[in-house]
């Protein structure tokens, strides 16, 4: 790892599904520029695009006038990725278990489960503006 102090960066995009690639490019470039191992970059890219898709589609209901903010904060040991939308939020504990036999063939509903599996930690909070923020952390030790 090349960075030794805390640094942060942020991308704000309108809630259009076509902007997902831009969010991925932002996250992957920031990780690569800081020397994060490739094995971790794909996990972080998968988790980030899951949450940005959720923010665009479920949080902001694809309303292009609403924004999705993606913030990345690096310390020597870990990266924190925060994805904020302007939606009303939801209870992640109410999401059906995607591993249950009756849900196994469902097309949707695996995003949060995958993020929890790939990240060290995942939290939700209400933003000051009344939207929803998902905060994910991954240690560089886990590569």
């Amino acid at each position: 790892m090349t960075h030794t102090s805390r640094d942060s960066l942020r991308l704000v995009i309108p809630s259009e599904p076509k902007r997902i690639a831009e969010a991925d490019e932002f996250v992957e470039s920031a990780l690569r520029e800081r020397g994060v191992p490739e094995s971790l970059i794909s996990d972080l890219a998968i988790a980030s695009t899951e949450m940005v898709n959720n923010a665009i589609i479920h949080g902001n209901k694809k309303d292009a006038s609403k924004k999705v903010k993606i913030s990345m904060t690096f310390t020597a040991d870990e990266v924190e990725i925060r994805v904020e939308d302007e939606g009303r939020g939801f209870n992640p504990d109410n999401v059906p278990d995607p591993l249950a036999e009756e849900n196994l063939l469902r097309e949707v509903g695996r995003g949060i489960f995958i993020v929890r599996s790939l990240m060290d930690n995942m939290e939700y909070e209400q933003t000051d503006e009344g939207g929803m923020a998902v905060i994910m952390r991954k240690s560089f030790e886990s590569s």
């Binding site: 794909s42 890219a45 998968i46 695009t49 899951e50 898709n53 097309e107 949707v108 695996r110 995958i114």
Partner: peptide, 17 residues
């Protein structure tokens, strides 16, 4: 394919069913 997220998995499941 470098990687896919749940969207890709959903497309495969939907196609298979």
């Amino acid at each position: 394919v470098d990687w896919m997220n749940s969207n890709g998995l959903g497309i495969l499941i939907s196609g298979m069913t």
